[in-house]
């Protein structure tokens, strides 16, 4: 699988990742090499093998639906780049 510059731009957009124009080509070449490594998986036939999501086949543990955490808004917002009245600020979304 060869990854072209336009693929890189598309993936970067999907991941909301800004990348420099001058780096697009080198990402395309790196990603092509990495996918070449990944495709070695095709050496083995996995028809009928059940995909494995967890090494110990554990399933998600459930807990009673009760309040377990205190409100820590102020403490948590100390790391926020821009807040006002307890809200996170972002550029205008609706004109």
């Amino acid at each position: 699988m060869s990854i072209q510059s336009e693929d890189v731009l598309k993936i970067a957009h999907l991941a909301r990742l800004g990348i420099q124009d001058e780096q697009v080509e080198s990402y395309a070449s790196d990603l092509t090499n990495i996918m070449g490594l990944v495709e070695q998986m095709n050496q083995v036939d996995t028809t009928g093998i059940e995909p494995m999501a967890h090494p110990l086949d554990q399933v998600q543990r459930l807990r009673p639906d009760v309040v377990s955490e205190k409100n820590q808004r102020e403490a948590l917002q100390k790391n926020a780049p821009d807040i006002q009245d307890g809200l996170f600020l972002v550029p205008r979304v609706i004109e």
Binding site: L14, I34, V38
Partner: peptide, 20 residues
């Protein structure tokens, strides 16, 4: 831009492989 500036090259490569 926040993600583009905040992450280095290797992290970006892996995010892109993952998204792909």
């Amino acid at each position: 831009r926040s993600r583009g500036e905040g992450f280095g090259d290797e992290v970006k490569r892996r995010i892109m492989i993952g998204a792909y």
